[in-house]
Design a protein around this nucleic acid. Structure first.
Lengths: 163, 163
DNA sequence: AAATATACTTAGCATTGCTAACGAAATATA
DNA sequence: TATATTTCGTTAGCAATGCTAAGTATATTT
């Protein structure tokens, strides 16, 4: 089968030999599951009238508080020119506002507006409601497994990014 | 999931919290974890020289076999014009080839080339290797939780999409 | 045979990613 | 102090990827 052919390529074969068999297989499945989950969830985002990059940046601002453009770019793992345009778009839409930085005139301070907070809240509700409906397929025990898995992934990724 | 659409999103959110607090909370965490996981993994994809949409479509072709453009668009949850351009790009890059459908001259049959298979293998290796490194943060028991979680998510999303 | 439906393409728009090149401000160094 | 370097953000321009509207060609239905 095609799956077997793919996984047995040279470098992955080495990893299998290193006792990492379980981790590689899980990484593969996890990757696939995350893709399918988000692809399904993003259907709802269209309703907000804003693109995915703006919604994601808005989320960082709402939960992380005001920050400079560079910090926002770094948080979103995007280059400064890209974030510059995303912030400009959010400002045009009235979702964020820009203020000069107190101590450094090169920097700008980006913060979310009340409209931005409202819009993000609605978008989050829609996505999460949709995913919660998906989880109706799962038993209580399975939901508990998913809760633990989400925490494990968050912790591991946070450690990897920081490294 | 019988939910009246007349209810405002705020009230609906409260309803869900009341009736289904656990699932909504898990949906939220799962959503966030999936975003962070994929954002981290996509760093590696740049090395392939192809964009995410082409890599993803290529993956569908490799694992699902040759199919029409419409089937591919449906599998990727994208509209036909979008897939039309993605397929054209894959053909220009020599990753896929296009043949006329035997029984219906309106359709085109898209299949992966050996170059496409090779490129996908390499991209998969990079992503999965990176994620497997991330999983080094996790214990054996945690990896097992993740394996189960991936299966649960795949099953639930597949059911939801089909519905 | 004619009308309708389906499959795909083309054209045109917006968003989002990048690099290169620029300006302004802060910091380091001579 | 004066100059050089570094840092922060923007502008310009390219490519990819999402969409809708509209067109073409082929199948299907009436």
């Amino acid at each position: 089968m095609a799956v077997k052919k793919i996984v047995s390529s040279a470098k992955l074969f080495l990893m299998l030999r290193k006792n990492n068999k379980e981790r590689v297989g899980v990484a593969d499945r996890l990757h696939s599951a995350a893709i399918h989950l988000l692809r399904y969830a993003r259907k709802e985002d269209v309703l907000s009238g804003e693109g995915p990059a703006r919604l994601s940046a808005l989320s960082v601002l709402v939960f992380g508080g005001p920050m400079t453009l560079g910090q926002l770019a770094s948080a979103e793992q995007v280059k400064p020119p890209t974030m510059s345009r995303i912030v400009a778009g959010m400002e045009r839409s009235g979702l964020a506002k820009i203020d000069p930085d107190a101590g450094d005139a090169r920097r700008i301070r980006v913060s979310v507006t009340s409209k931005g907070t409202r819009l993000l809240q609605q978008a989050r509700e829609r996505r999460i409601r949709l995913l919660a409906e998906v989880l109706d397929q799962a038993s209580g025990a399975e939901v508990e497994v998913l809760r633990e898995a989400a925490e494990i992934v968050e912790r591991a990724v946070r450690a990897a990014v920081q490294k």
